[in-house]
Design a binder for these strands. Structure first.
Lengths: 202, 202
DNA sequence: GGACTTCTGGAACGATTATTATATAATTAA
DNA sequence: TTAATTATATAATAATCGTTCCAGAAGTCC
């Protein structure tokens, strides 16, 4: 927050949101600086680099912006105020709902926006992989809690079950991008969650 | 097959395979012509364009090459010599096995190689979406057959069940790219298929 | 009113993008 | 042996990539 100097001519927060929508739709490498600058209010290269340092710097901010807004749906996975089953189920349903909304690009930015990378920018892909791992660990903790408190039997294959739910969760991104409506994914989630009852009954 | 003229100085088939591996790993836009030409035996721009017309032309050939080799694993979904359940299960397991092999890039080329696209090349993404739809229709036909011959009850929500399996199938690509081993995905498939028995018993 | 600080417009940077032009080499058919 | 055909090497194309430079504009502080 500079107390002196010429004031910025554009709204930084709005610019980050505009950039997020572009990166979300086209991905990190396929979104050009010219596109970004145009969407951010037609700002000049100088303004861009003064505010964000680099394209990668902006992308890092965009990822945090996404996580703290749209991405919050996956925080259901680490919500311990409900049963583990309810947490997993709500996490899946809210993710499916958010990712299929038409008011923004479809799918999950953390899954989609750095799939295609040239070798010299593999660290961008790795960065998103780390963010996905955070979500995976939430799911893992959630299922471990279920075993610990008797929601699921001790014999439960935790690693397998985490992979089952995470694989489905990640598949939602492609489904959403291909235009699948929320209702059908929601129905599939209902069917998927029936596995939980099968497991808890045994 | 030209009967006259100077013979080609490189093996066209091998060049397509080399290009496939690059597109598979980095995606359509993130793979440059310079990289491609180097991997294809260090051929010149002139040789490249004489043989493939354009980068897009090469990519279309690559997609067909993939479908007729590695991609064949998904033809299990349209194999009517076994039960529908066995066809779905085998399609998933073979896809998981192939996509996690370390002898080539991980994941499915049809799912991964055109996720990030600039607007002017959206038709590339659409082309792959069409190929994915072919697989989806195999799954759909397979499940419809199951309902028709009594493997699954008439009350089965076909659209839901197709989405359930396809979403999981597409999620395998991200799992494989993130380094998930075959065994754990295979275990998840076993659990996923238990849904089939739940449905057929009702 | 300077001095200081920050942001902006605009031009330019070198590198890389996919693609094309030109001239020549290597083959077959007549 | 000449013509026709196809592939080659090399150079150059225009456009775009992310980024930097520079002079000036627009503020606050003393």
């Amino acid at each position: 927050m500079p107390r002196t100097g010429r004031p910025r001519g554009f709204n930084r927060d709005e610019a980050v949101v505009a950039a997020m929508l572009l990166f979300w739709e086209h991905g990190f490498e396929s979104t050009s600086l010219a596109q970004l600058r145009a969407a951010m209010g037609g700002i000049s290269p100088a303004s861009f680099y003064a505010a964000f340092e680099s394209k990668e710097g902006l992308f890092r901010e965009v990822v945090q912006q996404y996580i703290s807004t749209y991405g919050q749906v996956s925080e259901s996975f680490c919500d311990t105020t409900m049963t583990s089953k309810a947490a997993i189920e709500q996490g899946l349903r809210r993710s499916a709902r958010m990712q299929t909304e038409r008011s923004h690009p479809q799918g999950c930015l953390l899954v989609l926006s750095a799939v295609n990378c040239s070798p010299e920018q593999k660290h961008i892909r790795d960065m998103l992989a780390k963010e996905r791992e955070r979500v995976r660990n939430w799911i893992k903790d959630c299922i471990e809690r279920a075993v610990a408190n008797g929601e699921l039997p001790d014999s439960t294959d935790i690693h397998m079950l985490v992979t089952l739910f995470e694989t489905f969760l990640q598949g939602i991104s492609t489904q959403a991008q291909d235009g699948a409506p929320y209702e059908i994914i929601d129905a599939a989630i209902t069917q998927l969650m029936s596995i939980w009852d099968t497991l808890s009954a045994s």
